[in-house]
Structures are given as structure tokens and as C-alpha cells.
Computed example of a mutant assay.
Amino acid sequence: MTKTRLYMGVSAALLAAASVTFFAKSAPAADPAEVVVASYGGAFQDAQTKAFFEPYAKATGAKVTGTTGTGYPKVKAMEQTGNISWDVVSAESPAFVNEVKDDLLQPIDYSVVKADGIPAEFRKQYGVGYIKFGTNLAWSKEKFPNGVTAAQFFDPRVKARRVMPSDPTYSLEFALMGDGVKPADLYPLDVDRAFKVIDRVKDQIIGYKGASDQQALIQQGEIDLAYIANGRVNDAIKAGANWAYSWDASLSDTEFWAVMKGAPHAAEAMKFINFAVQPDQQAELTRQIPYGPTNVDALKLLDPAVAKDLPSNPDNAKLGAVLNSEWWHDNYESVKARWATYIMQ
């Protein structure tokens, strides 16, 4: 009996070991790492793909999916429905502060995200500022060979097909600067005055469009004047548009990387952000589209000729204003509702 039991015990053990080996070899491989990044499309997202998405996928083997539609309303809707399909969002500062206010984001894990080269003002609890961009007055050189001022943009006697941003942010500041308000005196915004300024040329505004659509209109020759992100109009010029732009009455802002609360791939999202805020990747984004890096070490990697045309260049910065995200944090909802009604009238 002892031998029999020993034999049976050994046989059972061998069978169990063989089963474990069999099932281990037969089990499917773990899914590759994945991260979904929401941005804006067009030239900016093309630049992000070359500077961030493709290099990260190559370096880590992770699948990076870039999608469009980022913005506070979409992030809020996803959180409210619980149908969260994004991990990382690229957010302008007004959207970012509202997403923080509504508890839509999760804290950045700075044990993973090494952001020592980024000034403290851009290292927030819920996001990392990774570029500075400008929104600028731009014009067709064929229509206006001598250039245009912000005051002329809002002068009804200056006939032109105009386009303005689709959001009240940037638009109201531009209107007030066009009406003579100095950049240092913009905030708190005189909203009533800004709407009256826009009213002067409303019959010449062909649309209120996002930056990607504005760029398309420029390249298709369908507009004469625009208030547009500097990188977008610069990209249109590279593509052959006979346009120019100015830093007068420009408005600079910061774009943040953030991770949605409940993101399906939160751990990979932190790793992606860490990769994207390093000097080499930030510098590469600037080479692709002229937005200013926040990592001070990235600036050292850039051609001085490129750095000269960035929002962070002191000569450019002094000609315009800096968007006050805190003011928009407190006023966005009421102004947005009024803006939505206004542009539909």
C-alpha cells in the first residue's frame, strides 16, 4: 500500500506539473500596453504624432492611439456617463482648470513623470504644462500686402472675409485689444464691450471655427483674416499659403498633459507623459510646429532661428497678453452660454 500510494502520489504530481506546463504554454499572451491620447487633429496632432506618438510606440512597444475632440465638455460628458475611452488629454489652460474644478482628472504621478526641467509653474497636481502657444492675427498677403492691425480687424470699413475662434476664450481678449485695451489691463474682461466690438464686423465674419478648420480655410483661399494659433498659420504658410501673421495683440496660453479620472490605461498614461515632457521630445515637437517648449533644456536643443518665432521669445511676448485661466475658471460657463447664443444669431 505504501508503494502504491507513493506511485499514485508521484503520478499525480507529474500530471499536475505537466498540466501547468501545458496550460502555461497554451495561455494567450498578455495584451500589449496601450494608451489613448485625445488632441485636436490637423497639423498640431500630426506634429504630436511625429514627436510623441510614434517615437513612444517604437521605444516601448506600446500601442498609441491618437484621437480628436479633446475639450472640457467632452471630458465632462465621459465622466458623467462613465463611458471613458481616453487616457491622456491635451488641454488648453481654460479647459484644464475646469476639468480640475470638476474633479475629472487624476493626480500626476511624479514618481513616474520626471519633470525636473519644467518650471514649477507648469508642474501642477493634475497636469503638466508642455507647450506655450500663441493665438495671432493673420492675413492674406494678396488682400493686405501691407499687413493688418487688430483695430483694422474690427473696423467695418476694412472689407474682408474674417474668421474667429469657435470659443469665447481668445476671441473676447482679441476684441478688447482691437478696441485699444492694453494687454496688462485686459482682466477682468469687459464682456459686454467685447461683444459690441465683434458686432461691428459680425456681418463680415464667415464663421467661428476651431484652429484646424481655420487652417483649412486659409489653405483653400476662402478667408482673408483670421485669429489663429501661430503654429497652424505657420504650417499653412509652409504648405504654400501666401499669408503672414503678427505678434501684436497675440494671446499666449499653456497646453497641459492630463490623465482622465478612471482612465482605462492610467499607468501607461503616466509613462507616456513622462516620455513626452523630456527635452528631446519637446524640442522635436517645436521643430514640427513652432510652439514653445516648457522644458528649459529643450530650448538649448533648438536652432536660434526657430526659437526667435516662439511665443516665449521676449520680443514676441511683450507685444501681446497671457490668457488668465483663473478668470476663465470663474466665468467660463456663463460666458460660454452667452457666446453660443451670440454666434448662432
Score class of each variant (00 low, 15 high):
residue 221 G to K: 11
residue 218 I to Q: 01
residue 197 V to Y: 01
residue 228 I to S: 00
residue 235 D to Q: 14
residue 218 I to G: 01
residue 239 A to C: 14
residue 232 R to F: 12
residue 200 R to E: 07
residue 217 L to N: 12
residue 201 V to W: 01
residue 206 I to S: 14
residue 221 G to P: 08
residue 202 K to Y: 04
residue 193 R to N: 06
residue 246 S to H: 03
residue 244 A to F: 12
residue 221 G to L: 08
residue 217 L to D: 06
residue 214 Q to K: 08
residue 240 G to W: 14
residue 237 I to S: 10
residue 244 A to M: 12
residue 200 R to K: 15
residue 234 N to K: 08
residue 219 Q to H: 11
residue 222 E to D: 15
residue 234 N to V: 09
residue 238 K to E: 15
residue 217 L to Q: 12
residue 228 I to G: 01
residue 227 Y to K: 07
residue 244 A to W: 08
residue 210 G to F: 11
residue 226 A to S: 14
residue 239 A to V: 10
residue 240 G to F: 14
residue 243 W to T: 13
residue 247 W to F: 15
residue 208 Y to H: 13
residue 211 A to P: 01
residue 237 I to T: 04
residue 231 G to E: 04
residue 234 N to E: 13
residue 209 K to I: 09
residue 225 L to P: 01
residue 235 D to E: 15
residue 229 A to D: 11
residue 238 K to S: 15
residue 199 D to C: 02
residue 196 K to S: 06
residue 225 L to H: 06
residue 236 A to M: 07
residue 194 A to G: 02
residue 238 K to F: 06
residue 204 Q to P: 07
residue 215 Q to W: 00
residue 197 V to E: 00
residue 194 A to R: 00
residue 193 R to E: 07
residue 247 W to N: 12
residue 193 R to D: 01
residue 201 V to D: 02
residue 245 Y to G: 05
residue 228 I to P: 00
residue 236 A to R: 05
residue 192 D to H: 04
residue 228 I to T: 02
residue 227 Y to A: 03
residue 244 A to E: 13
residue 225 L to M: 09
residue 192 D to T: 02
residue 220 Q to I: 03
residue 212 S to P: 05
residue 198 I to Y: 01
residue 210 G to A: 04
residue 192 D to P: 07
residue 203 D to K: 11
residue 244 A to D: 15
residue 243 W to M: 12
residue 213 D to P: 00
residue 240 G to R: 15
residue 247 W to P: 07
residue 227 Y to W: 11
residue 207 G to V: 12
residue 229 A to W: 02
residue 199 D to E: 09
residue 247 W to S: 11
residue 225 L to D: 01
residue 210 G to T: 03
residue 197 V to D: 00
residue 218 I to E: 00
residue 193 R to A: 09
residue 246 S to I: 07
residue 214 Q to Y: 04
residue 241 A to I: 06
residue 245 Y to M: 10
residue 199 D to V: 03
residue 216 A to L: 12
residue 240 G to H: 15
residue 210 G to I: 09
residue 231 G to C: 12
residue 224 D to Y: 06
residue 237 I to H: 08
residue 205 I to M: 04
residue 213 D to S: 10
residue 220 Q to K: 13
residue 226 A to I: 05
residue 213 D to H: 03
residue 200 R to L: 13
residue 200 R to P: 03
residue 233 V to K: 08
